[in-house]
Design a protein around this nucleic acid. Structure first.
Length: 322
DNA sequence: CCCCAGCAGTGGAAGATAGT
DNA sequence: ACTATCTTCCACTGCTGGGG
């Protein structure tokens, strides 16, 4: 039990920098006296831990101290090397930190494993920049300074001022309580609260960020995975949804079902379905044509008709335009 | 089975020290 | 001078092993 606590203590100091005996006692669920005895034991064992007395004092490890990663097996090290998602790290402004961390993982391996692990990573590729059809995967350019500032605010639990440019609107400054950062399919999001209301911001639309000293108003603990699922559910049920009645060829049914949010009713070849928004509905049904005919709403019929007219106009000429 | 000594681990309280 | 923090001293609890 005590050995576990000693390890936890070293890890806490490595992760948080300086911590007071009282703070360590809270984390480890023991008295401050016990923490102090543990510190003494670590010190006797050669761990370079030192005390700073007075206000804002506490215990810290000497800079540069690191535990050796002895005991890391070849497969374990390899798993770390390929699991550390480069894009994810870049999304959070940690690309260079990931690179140096990976160097340390390789460096910590015994000589016998080091060459093999380095060679193996050359033969395993995760998330290349294009797919098999050479289509570039959508990646967002995120300014490191902005993401780093957001990351600092999220981790420190401070409010943050962001200059945000919503889709089709002018950018404006706003102050938010950051809850967490999420990366999904190479797109980054800031989950936050603004005046107590849940807000989700695309990182690519955050033009500038400034972490404030004021503590954020947010719960101490958060299940980010669940928060993300809740928000995506709400987003899907948002007020931009459109309902479409469509008559389908049997061959097109499966393809349509892959693009809709829900099927409200089905009567032979006629289906009533909902799409996330009008633009998405138009795009999906254009892809399906001529295997599908929109019966309602009329504006969607008109939009598809206009698209077809534009296409006809372009290809109706004998020769391409110069 | 019981008693006892030794030991590790723990906690409280007072004192010392350093920053503001 | 005040406050926050570490240091030192003392005592308690629970476990373990030896001896009767």
């Amino acid at each position: 039990m005590r050995a576990d606590r000693l390890v936890s203590l070293v890890l806490l100091l490595r992760q948080r920098g300086r911590l007071s005996a009282a703070a360590l006692a809270r984390e480890l669920e023991v008295s401050t006296r016990t923490v102090l005895r543990d510190i003494e034991a670590l010190s006797a064992a050669g761990v370079p831990v030192y005390a700073e007395r007075g206000r804002n004092g506490g215990f810290a490890l000497l800079p540069g101290f690191r535990t050796e990663l002895t005991g890391l097996s070849h497969d374990e090290a390899l798993a770390l090397l390929i699991a550390g998602s480069r894009r994810g790290a870049q999304t959070f402004g940690l690309g260079s930190a990931l690179a140096s961390a990976m160097l340390k993982v390789v460096d910590a391996l015994p000589d016998s494993h080091r060459v093999a692990a380095a060679g193996a990573t050359q033969r395993l590729l995760v998330d290349p920049r294009t797919d098999l059809l050479s289509r570039p995967l959508v990646t967002e350019e995120l300014p490191d300074a902005v993401v780093a500032e957001l990351r600092i605010a999220v981790l420190a639990g401070h409010k943050v001022r962001i200059r945000y440019a919503p889709d089709g609107k002018a950018p404006a400054w706003r102050t938010v309580d950051p809850i967490g950062l999420v990366t999904v399919r190479d797109q980054g999001y800031l989950l936050a609260a603004r005046s107590g209301e849940d807000r989700t911001y695309r990182l690519s639309r955050v033009l500038a960020a400034e972490a404030l000293d004021e503590p954020a108003e947010r719960p101490d603990r958060v299940d980010l995975d669940r928060a993300w699922r809740d928000r995506s559910t709400r987003f899907r049920a948002g007020d931009h949804q459109v309902t479409v009645r469509v008559r389908l060829d049997p061959d097109s049914r499966e393809q349509l079902l892959r693009t809709v949010l829900a099927v409200l009713s089905e009567d032979g070849p006629t289906l009533e379905v909902t799409f996330q928004d009008g633009r998405h509905a138009e795009w999906a049904l254009w892809q399906l044509s001529p295997g599908a005919e929109v019966l309602e709403p009329q504006w969607l019929r008109t939009a598809l008709h206009d698209r077809a007219l534009a296409l006809t106009a372009r290809y109706g000429r004998d020769q391409p335009r110069p």
